[in-house]
Amino acid sequence: MNTHIQVNNLNAWYGKQPALKEINIEIPKNQITVIMGPSGCGKTTLLKTFNRFLELNDGAKITGEVLVNGQDIYQPDVDVTEVRKRIGLLAQRPYPLPMSIYDNVAYGMNIHRMKKDRLGYKASVKHYLELAGLWDEVQKRLHEPATGLSIGQQQRLCLARGLAVEPEVILGDEPTSALDPISSQHIEKKLLELKSQYTTVIVTHTLRQAKRLADHVIFMYMGEVVEAGPARNVFTNPQQERTRQYLEGLF
């Protein structure tokens, strides 16, 4: 297995409340890893440690290592904006930035000064909108407010926006939970298409979605990793009693 993200002895607290306990896992490169577990088990917290979003919570504390390509992203000399550029996030609800559709996609490339001229931006905006499967729907209204899109379209716009800064990893925090079934299907399809180019980590609370997407599974309970491994093994032959109960829908 080609490891992309490796987590060593990771602990996290909100204030005094422990949220993650002794996490040791590996996320394989260019596959979809699904983190699952009952609500409140620390899935989202774990995900947020990968792009250093946990520190945005007042009073959140963290110890241990998160190695991306072997480098600990919590080292003091690490530039947090660089981390977040290379580890993209698709949030639970789409939040289009208060600007046009075009500028939403161009924003990230712009702040990181990734293109040299207007033509470069134009081509990339088109490319990533196509990649997110949104181009055909919005090409005629690129300069209208992004808030005018439907919520499903907004989520695909957020996907395009995230891909445009050329990340290595896509994190998805229940990225379809706010969407209608058709839009969800759209996003899932995109994620499957993109997995050959990006390492993907998805948090979900629906077992069926986990089964549709996962190459690799991490099952969490009460802030701990109970079981992790290739999807086929975990789903068909869980090693732990808790995992089995969860898969059978007992809690």
Binding site: F53, E82, R84, G88, A91, Y95, L97, Y107, G162
Partner: peptide
Amino acid sequence: PVDLEHAALALGSTKLEVATRIVLR
């Protein structure tokens, strides 16, 4: 909404960029 700020931070914005490009707008 604080998530709007987070959306910009998730793309690797600095706080200054969040302030001037997102919050300001």
